Simulated scan of single mutants.
Amino acid sequence: MLLVRGVQNLPKDWRGCALTIGNFDGLHLGHRALIERTRLRAQELGLPLTVMCFEPTPREYFRPQSAPGRISNLRSKLADFEAAGVEVVVVQRFGKPFCTLSGLAFIDHIIHQHLRARAVIVGDDFNFGAARSGDMGLLRARGAECGFTTESVPSVVVDGERCSSTAIREALAIPDLSRAARMLGRPYRLLGHVRHGLKLGRELGMPTANLYLLRPPALRLGIYAVEAQLRGEPRPWKGVAALGVRPTLGLTHVLLETHLFEPPGDIYGARIEVEFRHFLRPELRFDSLDALKVQMQRDKLDAMALLR
């Protein structure tokens, strides 16, 4: 899969594509239907399947203090794109002057001039351009003039509910992991590389694999029974994970700390994928490290019982 940072950096040999556009937060079943339809059009045209997404998302750019938490980090999103058969991912930086493009300018300069799209497939709620001024009517009309076809894919309904990133965020905030997993088509997960931390878990008898999160996730902070997959390892590792800011230590940055029940050896720098299976309890502040240590052992036993 070719990853391109900004349409201006797309190699000329990769221009001309079947294109889909969106934030694709979580890559849920609705997104997968969109990508599958784009894949079929790409095969018909003999062109690469290309996805355009945005960093940061428009809501994060315009309203950073009130933007919703991320369902997936960028690394997880890219892994999902690759697994879905996407050939080119254009990660477009969302900011000035990009965000000031009108709907018509977005079509002319981005879709037509830079990407040379021959087919554009989007969701049925797709809007684009400054102030979301572009809609399907404009896209179809201008697309016919520029030489590309346009179609929208209807929403996917799961258990009577429209599958959307908003609905998944609502489920994760509770957290209702089963509801989120049904719309995602898989258990909720976070993916990243194991980093060095404060080594406090080791001092408390429960060493952890740490993932630093650039942006707060949509999942409720707390303690979870998890299964983790290490790149290159054939089997999953069971464990217990703490997603939070570590209030007992007076810290504020969200971190995912995962304790694996079986020692995995030295995994610093390794890619780890953590699937959240059961919610155990919310994050709490303890009066002492001794009290925290006792609770950590209880959490471990609870997670082991749930993951049998």
Rank of each mutant, 00 (worst) to 15 (best):
A117L: 01
S155F: 15
R5D: 09
E161S: 07
L256A: 10
L249R: 07
D159N: 14
A241D: 03
V91F: 05
D125K: 06
R142P: 00
L243C: 06
L78C: 03
Y61P: 12
L219F: 06
P263L: 07
P11D: 11
R162L: 14
P207E: 09
F106M: 10
I272T: 04
E161N: 07
D176E: 10
K300I: 02
C99Y: 06
G192Q: 05
I121E: 00
P207S: 06
A84S: 13
D299L: 00
S288K: 11
R220A: 11
Q297L: 14
K77M: 12
A291D: 11
G244R: 02
V122T: 15
A218E: 10
L191Y: 00
P154I: 08
R308E: 12
R70Y: 10
T150S: 15
A167T: 12
D159G: 06
L10F: 03
G197W: 08
F54I: 06
E60I: 00
V86I: 06
A79Q: 14
A105G: 10
K293C: 04
E170P: 00
I107P: 11
Q113W: 09
A225V: 10
I110M: 13
K96R: 15
P216A: 11
L172A: 03
L139P: 07
R169T: 05
A173E: 14
P247K: 05
G69S: 06
G69P: 11
V156M: 08
V194N: 02
L74P: 04
G26K: 07
N23D: 13
D80C: 12
S72D: 10
R142D: 06
G6K: 07
F81N: 05
D13N: 05
L40F: 03
E203L: 13
A180K: 08
G197Q: 04
L115E: 03
L230V: 13
I223D: 02
D302C: 04
G30S: 10
H193W: 10
K293V: 01
R93D: 14
F106Q: 01
I272R: 11
T150K: 04
S288R: 10
H253K: 15
L198D: 15
R182I: 00
R140S: 09
A181S: 15
S66C: 02
C146G: 05
L221P: 01
R5W: 15
E161F: 13
V254D: 02
A303L: 00
Y212Q: 06
Y224E: 10
P236N: 07
